[in-house]
Amino acid sequence: MKFWIILSAIIPLLGLSGCVAPQQPVYYYGSYSRTLYQAKKNPSPEKAAKHQAELLSIIEQSKQRNLRVPPGICCEYGWALAQTGRVSEAETYFAMEQRAYPESAAFVGFLRSQIKKGNGNL
C-alpha cells in the first residue's frame, strides 16, 4: 500500500522533469547581421555605434520577450564597451553572458584577462 502511494507521488514528478528538456531554440536577433555587415563593409564610428545600439536592443528585446539572449551578443556588447574604456559596464554584460551560457566561462575569462592587461583598449 505504502509502495503505491510513493509510486503515485513519483510518477507526476517524472512527468514534470520531462517538461524541462531543452526545446527548439528561439532567439530574437533583430537586424544583427545587417548592422554588423554595414559596420564591416564601410567601417566608421557611426556604423559601429549603430551596430552597438542594435546589440543593446537585442538584449533588451530578448528580455521583454522572455527569451534567452542569443549566444555571444552580451559578450560582443561588453567587449565593445570595454574598448571605449567602459570597463565596469562591460563586466555587467560579461556576467550576463556567463549566467546564460555557463560554457562561455573560459572565453569570458580570457576577455577579462585581456582587458586587465590593457588589451581591451586596442
Partner: peptide
C-alpha cells in the same frame, strides 16, 4: 567574406550551439 561571416553565427545558434562571437 563579409556577407558570409556576418550571417554564419545565426544558423549555428539555431542549431543549438554556443557560438563564440566572431567579431571579438
Amino acid at each position: 567574406k563579409e556577407y558570409y561571416s556576418t550571417t554564419v553565427s545565426v544558423p549555428l545558434a539555431y542549431s543549438g550551439f554556443y557560438v563564440i562571437p566572431m567579431e571579438v
